[in-house]
Computed example of a mutant assay.
Amino acid sequence: MSDTEKIQAESRTEFGKGAARRIRRDNKVPAVIYGHGNEPVHVTLPGHSTMMALKRGGANALLELDIDGTSQLALTKQIQVDPIRRTLEHIDFVAVRKGERVVVDVLVHVVGEAGPDTLVVTENNSVQVEAEATNIPESIELSVEGLAAGTQILASELALPKGTTLLVDADTLVVNITEQISAEALEAELEEAEAEAGIEREESDEEAAENAEAEASAEGDAEGTSDSE
């Protein structure tokens, strides 16, 4: 993330739910910038261009905000989105400087196809790292191409970009490749677990029909044997 998105921002002096609603009606977004021991800076951002910048920048988008003629690098920390309209409701930023190192969570992007009859289980879909604010990786790619069942990939085995330092425990399990279980084996394990827990499974319509058919067939065989005697 070497390039930063430039966004024109406006200082905000009105606060509260009413002021926030008025800002959103104008297709703008209320936001707050924290950090460096300063008082929080309240700003208003253009809705569409900010949304596009966040989509391009990913979870740790770095924006260059022009606040009334003053430039401020701001790292995205929390985004509130309307659950129905999917529009931006509010954004929290952390003020950063060029060359400053920051701690962020970066997504692990699993690519490739593991070996036959395997199941790829992602135990941790992100890892915490330290990187320069202007060079935060959008994601860390992890290939599982051709790997066999029983393979486990730890955080220490991730290929981190230059200048990025892993902060989580080196032995943290990221991906676990297991043997794929068949539907029959899965059903057998489920029945065994239910039996141990004392759970009686209700008979399905299909099972009931099959059992009824088997009973009828057994009765027919019994009657045929009796007649022959």
Rank of each mutant, 00 (worst) to 15 (best):
A214L: 11
G35W: 06
K162D: 13
L62A: 07
S204D: 09
A222E: 12
A159R: 12
G58Q: 12
A74G: 06
V121W: 02
I7Y: 02
N38S: 12
G16P: 06
N211T: 13
D66T: 05
N124I: 01
R25G: 10
E191K: 15
Q8N: 12
E184W: 01
T164H: 05
E89D: 13
Q152H: 05
I23F: 01
T165M: 04
S139M: 01
A188K: 15
H90K: 08
V120T: 13
A149P: 03
E179W: 07
R25C: 02
A212I: 08
D117I: 03
E123V: 13
K55R: 15
K98A: 13
E64L: 07
V106C: 03
D105H: 14
D82K: 14
T165Q: 12
H109L: 06
V32L: 06
G163T: 05
T76K: 05
G150H: 08
N60K: 13
G47S: 07
P46E: 07
V175T: 08
E200Q: 12
E138M: 04
T13Y: 11
V144T: 04
D105S: 14
V94K: 14
A114L: 07
T165N: 10
V102H: 08
K162Q: 11
N38T: 10
G47A: 09
H36K: 13
V111Y: 11
E132N: 11
V29R: 11
A131W: 08
N27A: 11
A53N: 08
V121L: 06
